[in-house]
């Protein structure tokens, strides 16, 4: 393996590791569930993408022919990450998890929970 490819793979791996770590730090540091959703779902898509591309490059060079099946995992994660985030946000809203006090326009949360437009008055109140 030439030195340039080794450097490329190492740099991609380090970038990936950095973003994955940032995602987990965010998961620990951020103050409430709604903000916590942002860090892992976003950071892991690029982090995993970089690691998978590094694996793709390395395997292609080692085996001597193009090896692109890691793309399958990348695509799968890219498609599923927003769905997971959306489901978790729905769950958090449904469980009436409190948002951080300084969150702006918190009055929208109750309408969002009932899937009503923001200007609708809740009928049963």
């Amino acid at each position: 393996m030439s030195i340039w490819i080794e450097i490329l793979v190492s740099v991609l791996l380090l970038i990936g590791g950095f973003f994955v770590l940032v995602g987990s730090i965010g998961l620990c540091r951020l103050p409430d569930i709604y903000t916590r959703l942002h860090a892992p779902t976003k950071a892991t898509t690029v982090g995993m993408g970089a690691i998978l591309i590094a694996s793709m490059v390395m395997m292609s060079v080692e085996e001597g022919h193009l090896s692109v099946h890691e793309l399958l995992i990348t695509l799968f994660l890219l498609i599923t990450a927003p769905i997971t985030a959306h489901m978790l946000a729905k769950t958090a809203l449904h469980h009436e998890n409190r948002a951080l006090k300084r969150t702006q326009s918190q009055q929208l949360m109750s309408n969002a929970r009932e899937q009503l437009p923001p200007d609708a008055n809740r009928s049963h109140e």
Partner: peptide, 21 residues
């Protein structure tokens, strides 16, 4: 990702989360 990384590693007190319709 770069933006979120900067926000996550920065001070928490400056965050201004919000709901938008």
């Amino acid at each position: 990702n770069v933006e979120v990384a900067i926000l996550v590693l920065g001070p928490m007190r400056k965050l201004q989360p919000a709901f938008v319709a």
